[in-house]
Design a protein around this nucleic acid. Sequence first.
DNA 1: GCCGTTTTTGATAATGATTATCATTATAAT
DNA 2: ATTATAATGATAATCATTATCAAAAACGGC
Lengths: 136, 136
Amino acid sequence: MKKYSKQREIILESLKSRKDHPTAEKLFMDLKKQMPELGIATVYRNLTELCEEGLIIKVKSRTGPDRYDGNELPHIHFECKKCGDFIDIYLTETQIKQMYSIMKKLSGEVEAEYENSEIYLTGLCKRCKNIVKKVV
Amino acid sequence: MKKYSKQREIILESLKSRKDHPTAEKLFMDLKKQMPELGIATVYRNLTELCEEGLIIKVKSRTGPDRYDGNELPHIHFECKKCGDFIDIYLTETQIKQMYSIMKKLSGEVEAEYENSEIYLTGLCKRCKNIVKKVV
DNA sequence: GCCGTTTTTGATAATGATTATCATTATAAT
DNA sequence: ATTATAATGATAATCATTATCAAAAACGGC
């Protein structure tokens, strides 16, 4: 039977309250301040479990280690090719409907059971775009 | 100055001709048959370069090492949660237009310079779905 | 509260994928 | 052919993540 642990609670709470997309390492460093005895293995272990339970999602990065996201609102991710930052982009109702209908149709065609979709955008974020301008 | 190499040519050709999404390791194993002196570092090195040049794309997997794709037609990827297989899904003209317009709009809102989008679907592929049925 | 059972933890070893190093080989320009 | 530069392949190094396992924490019954 599943048992309570303070560590799991803190990990989930922290992830749900922050608006960035930390790596396991970053989350570990931050949480260690309020719980010095915390171990990195515990962080990885719980993040994996929380993903399996669908309470958080893992976001694969193109430029570094995996990131984790506790934001339950429907959104897609923009990853900056330069600084590696992730930005949440929220969809309107219309956009969600359009996407959903396309996905649904596609999954039917492929004869597979579609469960989840993730959309990634890549490019340069506002900050990095401006830096490029200055340098050039 | 960039110099020709037989290795790079073979890697690119091979990737363009096959319809799967091999890992660097798989590609290396296969190519070693026709070029026994090939080294794994050369494969990784060239795959990275070819990605930077935009001739192939890297596909991040949820269940294993990165995969590479030389298919230049616009398509999205379906990853099976069970067997880890990737399936290409082709979009119709209408679907591409819809997607593109949404992406464009979103990138404007986020004040970032949108360059690329990738859409991942996850779920169970036909084969794995049937296995589940049999077992249950 | 205490006891026995099961789960979780944290330290650390092990693994797996990818990247860095560097002497050797291949390519291209003169 | 000579020389300069880039690419290769073997392997060491790195980095993220997972596995191992003894100790600690949580639960259930008494």
